[in-house]
């Protein structure tokens, strides 16, 4: 399987639209099913916040970090409507909204803390990645902290096997068994057929009965997400360029992370 190239003349905004926003909406429900376990460093950061602190989760996806510490008040936003619907569906108590990371809907200097986990690496230029960190920080009070995670270039032992010296700006495949899409593509005839066989299809849904369906299993669809893979030292450097003080940094599960403070 050959991976497509990022078109050379694409604008940063269109690149993020085509290779990030559209893709997350397409893969939202499948993606969400794979995202339920909090990463230890993130959990530790959230549990370490003072009781009743208020925070934002920028790029919260399906909201898996919003309920980690029940003594916090958190608002999560994500650029993907599909993922925010997943979050709301998983727990209607999560405070979530749809928003762009560069235009957050929060008052400045308001929050005690922020997290942004596996998000900044989707911005397509260094300027936009630094701006994104700056923008998150603008919402945090002076002295407040933010935890930021980005995918690492150095992950030779991972399934993907990216390593030092590889291209840092890449498209990463997501293989999707997308039944809905398939149905949509089928013309009216099939839909009518499906309607006529409505009672049968109800039976088909019973899990205990082996399903013998006349419809061939849809081909898996591959979607490509754009990532900037961070190399060692790059994330702290971006954070400093954004005006933050780096409090702590490290590497966990193929990702670089920093805890930064707003001066």
């Amino acid at each position: 399987m050959s991976i497509p190239e990022i078109p050379e003349d694409i604008t940063p905004v269109n690149q993020e639209q085509n290779f990030v926003h559209d893709v997350y909406n397409d893969i939202a429900s499948h993606f969400s099913q794979t995202r339920y376990k909090p990463w230890p460093i993130v959990e530790k950061f959230l549990m370490g916040q003072k009781d009743y602190s208020i925070g934002i989760d920028v790029g919260c996806g399906n909201g898996k970090y919003l309920g980690v510490n029940p003594n916090l008040f958190m608002i999560g936003t994500d650029r993907s409507e599909g993922l925010i619907e997943c979050a709301h569906g998983l727990n209607s108590n999560y405070n979530v909204g749809i928003s762009d990371g560069l235009s957050l809907p929060h008052p400045n200097n308001k929050f005690d803390f922020a997290i942004s986990i596996a998000v900044i690496h989707h911005f397509s230029t260094p300027e936009r990645r630094i701006e994104a960190i700056q923008h998150i920080l603008s919402k945090v009070k002076s002295g407040g902290e933010a935890l930021i995670y980005c995918w690492a270039l150095e992950q030779e032992t991972s399934r993907r096997g990216y390593k030092e010296g590889d291209d840092q700006d890449i498209l990463v495949p997501w293989v999707l068994q997308d039944k809905k899409k398939k149905e949509k593509k089928e013309p009216k005839r099939r839909r009518k057929l499906a309607k006529d066989q409505a009672s049968e299809s109800v039976e088909e849904q019973k899990p205990e009965e082996p399903v013998e369906t006349p419809v061939p299993k849809p081909e898996p669809v591959t979607k490509y997400r754009y990532y900037h893979l961070y190399k060692e030292g790059e994330l702290p450097s971006n954070a400093e360029d954004a005006g933050a003080v780096v409090v702590d940094k490290g590497y966990e599960r193929d990702n670089w992370w920093v805890i930064i403070r707003k001066p």
Binding site: I54, F73, I75, N95, G97, S99, D100, S103, L104, P105, H106, P107, N108, K110, F111, S138
Partner: peptide, 24 residues
């Protein structure tokens, strides 16, 4: 959206970020 959330959100437009009238 909880009523409480209204106290933590405002207009997302850049030019409105520092305007007092964009919140609430």
């Amino acid at each position: 959206m909880k009523f409480l959330t209204t106290n933590f959100i405002q207009c997302a437009v850049k030019g409105c970020q520092s305007s007092d009238s964009s919140f609430p």
